[in-house]
Design a protein around this nucleic acid. Structure first.
Length: 409
DNA sequence: CATCCACAGGAAGATCTGGTAG
DNA sequence: CTACCAGATCTTCCTGTGGATG
């Protein structure tokens, strides 16, 4: 038997430490949500009005990422759907994540699709599609809940407020159906962007989600680990480590569960019978690395060039300003045969890179010598070179025989 | 202490893609 | 086929500004 056969056989015969991998996936909603009983109760009470045919309020949920906002909504909606079925009530729900559906048209499109209404993906005027969706919703003769998750992505654009305004007041235009809008945001300063009229109608009821504490994270992890792994695959102390690592950063339950899953995958790959603290630490680093890699790889070509320009400059000097980035960027454009964008646009790219956490910027005034952004690379420049070499054959060619002197200006 | 550098970043609009409707 | 639509992307034009320097 060849060595390859051996490896395959070994892997296939090995008993997996996973019992049920699915419970660690992002969109799994567990049977119970520990430490969210109060929030669930509140939301349930609000929506319960619907069971009696009344019009429930619009709801506004806010709290940081990974505090269970989405999970609570989905949990309550699932229960509501079950109840509605049992009592033969008309009820429909649409879940729209406005990070992905971040324009008025897309929001309407997704809402319609979720409600089983067929509309074209593009091509129509927003007013037309709104009209169409409105009529179809009325025809449903139902109580309809529209959940707008990560609503801040919609509101930060000017047109976003308009569509929200119309959605939150849609009931005035309906005769046979009732609509409740639930907005979810993790941006706590988000209210500033929101049109006052929308704010008042959306926050008829609001529910605040506090970050989980270490103990709470531990409980959540414990619950998931019991479902996900076979007995004895993970110790309490290891779970506590994951909880501590996650709580230290953010109290983000999603990240904690991610960490648990990846630690499990690493342990499995190694053929270990148990997830150790070592696996957790490896997972922790892997998560960080992967986020960075993925971020760089998914950058548009132009932004890659800007990032590369910054990385190249940063190897030589820690004082990288917009002006020098522009020069280096233009040089790279010339080499790669890319038409360069204007300074204004490049500045947007740099801000983008900052949002992604790849660089950080500070506006500094040098008095007589102007006022500009000082940009620093937040990740090792070698990482940038490496990932770009992998991701882009053209850039790989340039970086192949790269030496710091080649790019001297 | 006014000046002026080297930009930041808002507003508006041009261009282009990918679509519908009749 | 033409007329039209939304939205991404980018440009053009613009006003605003912290502080070293003359």
């Amino acid at each position: 038997m060849s060595i390859v056969d051996k490896i395959f056989d070994e892997v296939l015969n090995r008993k997996s430490i996973f019992k049920n991998r699915r419970v660690l996936s992002i969109d799994y909603v567990p049977e119970t949500l520990p430490h969210r009983e109060k929030e669930i109760e509140k939301l349930a009470k609000i929506l319960a009005t619907a069971l009696k045919g009344g019009k429930p309020s619009n709801v506004f949920e806010y709290g940081k990422t990974g505090t269970g906002k989405t999970a609570v909504i989905l949990y309550v909606l699932n229960k509501l759907i079950q109840k509605a079925k049992k009592y033969n009530l008309h009820f429909a729900a649409a879940y729209v994540n406005t990070r992905m559906y971040n324009t008025p048209y897309k929001v309407l499109y997704k809402t319609a699709t979720e409600l089983g209404i067929k509309v074209p993906r593009t091509g129509l005027a927003v007013a037309d599609i709104f009209e169409k969706v409105l009529r179809r919703i009325d025809m449903l003769e139902s109580f309809v809940v529209i959940v707008l998750d990560e609503i801040d992505y919609l509101v930060k654009k000017k047109e976003g407020n308009d569509i929200l305004y119309r959605l939150t007041r849609i009931n005035n235009e309906l005769e046979n159906s009732q609509v409740s809008v639930i907005g979810i945001t993790n941006d706590l300063r988000f209210k500033e962007f929101l049109d006052a009229r929308v704010l008042s109608s959306l926050s008829e009821e609001s529910i605040v989600f506090e970050p989980y504490t270490v103990e709470q994270l531990y409980d959540i992890l414990k619950q998931r680990a019991e479902l996900a792994f076979i007995d004895g695959a993970i110790d309490d102390s290891t779970l506590r480590l994951i909880a501590a690592l996650s709580a230290r950063e953010s109290g983000d339950a999603r990240k904690a569960i991610d960490l648990l899953r990846i630690a499990g995958e690493i342990a499995e790959r190694e053929g270990a019978e148990k997830i150790t603290e070592q696996h957790v630490r490896m997972a922790y680093e892997e998560v960080e690395r992967d986020i960075i890699k993925a971020a760089i790889k998914s950058l548009p070509h132009q932004e890659k060039l800007v990032l590369l320009a910054i990385a190249l400059l940063f190897t030589k000097s820690k004082k990288v300003t917009t002006g020098v980035v522009k020069k280096m960027y233009e040089k790279l454009c010339e080499i790669t045969g890319t038409p360069p964008v204007t300074l204004r646009r490049m500045n947007d790219f740099i801000n983008d890179l900052e949002t992604l956490g790849l660089v950080s910027c500070q506006i500094v005034s040098f008095g007589r010598y102007g006022r500009t952004k000082v940009i620093s690379l937040e990740i090792p420049s070698q990482t940038v070179f490496l990932v770009l070499t992998e991701a882009d054959p053209l850039l790989a060619e340039i970086l192949k025989d790269w030496s710091p002197f080649k790019f001297d200006t």
